[in-house]
Design a binder for these strands. Sequence first.
DNA 1: ACCTGAACACCGTTCAAGT
DNA 2: ACCTGAACACCGTTCAAGT
Lengths: 187, 187
Amino acid sequence: MVDKATQLLDDYGIADLTMRRLARELNVTPGALYWHFADKQELLGAVADRILTPALAEVVADWQGRITAICGQLRDALLSHTDGAELVSASFAAGRSTAATELLARLTDAAASAGVAPAHAGLAARTVVYYVLGFTADEQSRLQWDAAGAALSDGQSVLGDDDPGVRFAFGVRLLIDGIAARQPQRL
Amino acid sequence: MVDKATQLLDDYGIADLTMRRLARELNVTPGALYWHFADKQELLGAVADRILTPALAEVVADWQGRITAICGQLRDALLSHTDGAELVSASFAAGRSTAATELLARLTDAAASAGVAPAHAGLAARTVVYYVLGFTADEQSRLQWDAAGAALSDGQSVLGDDDPGVRFAFGVRLLIDGIAARQPQRL
DNA sequence: ACCTGAACACCGTTCAAGT
DNA sequence: ACCTGAACACCGTTCAAGT
């Protein structure tokens, strides 16, 4: 069920991931889905959890390394599925992905390790998540847009400032520096 | 047309801001709307622009002051309309709000003033926008959720750490410190 | 220039009834 | 326990034809 939904997402995108279409693909009536899921959001949350599973690999490192790793794994996971960033963003906002909640908890932990006051660590973590989701949704929509169209004009650069990975890392470092400045005092 | 759409948004929320409903409210046929707007996204972009107009008030200050002001004005504008953050987020992501683009340009300017390399100023600006949209969408959904329900349980605090304004400012400062760290060298 | 009528191709959700 | 049939109340978009 979640398998077929994920496959539908990958093959046709989030706009075509409808309850009716999923039912058709499973050779059941639309109503049948409502015995397994309370509503569409719950189904999407389950798909989000599936997408996020690879991003839950544990990492042993200092707090900067943990944040960098989680951000990178999260972005990779989102980019691995058509409209992945958009779907996970929606499920995260609706609070219907437990995996997203777990990821947030780990970032909160890392922020606390950085010396951010307990009351603020969760805020710092959310700031990071908003960035990764926003950046990746943006990247993915451009990516998918010119995948279906121009055969990438390429432009000038050889290796650098317009590589999405490099651009992504810029923001991650910005956030890490901002978090570092949240320590009670610099040592 | 955009007036009625905005009114519909304020009164019933984004889910009920449909082309058919807007047409009904204007005493026209759904098809009539497509003489004025190419599609629904264009209409939503126009509503987004309307919402964002108050956030375009110019501010004279140093770069930190400009970023803080733009973020605050943006959040206020979003909170002034039902589902404002969600609607503007969608229009921004789809690149169909010119006001959002203008706001991004101003943040890019401020980041450049901060000494961020020209190639990176736009990235820093996007990071800020992702934060404001993410934070405010989150805040607004909670706000609207317990506006329709429990008469706010209130909890413990008297003035502080769980005031959304204070929480919002935390992230803004984090971002500003991160941007400051992007300067070629500290003076 | 601006709108209607009517259609096309869909949605999410509910729920009595069946097996 | 799990699903069907059938309905309810909708969607966005197009386009010939009218005024």
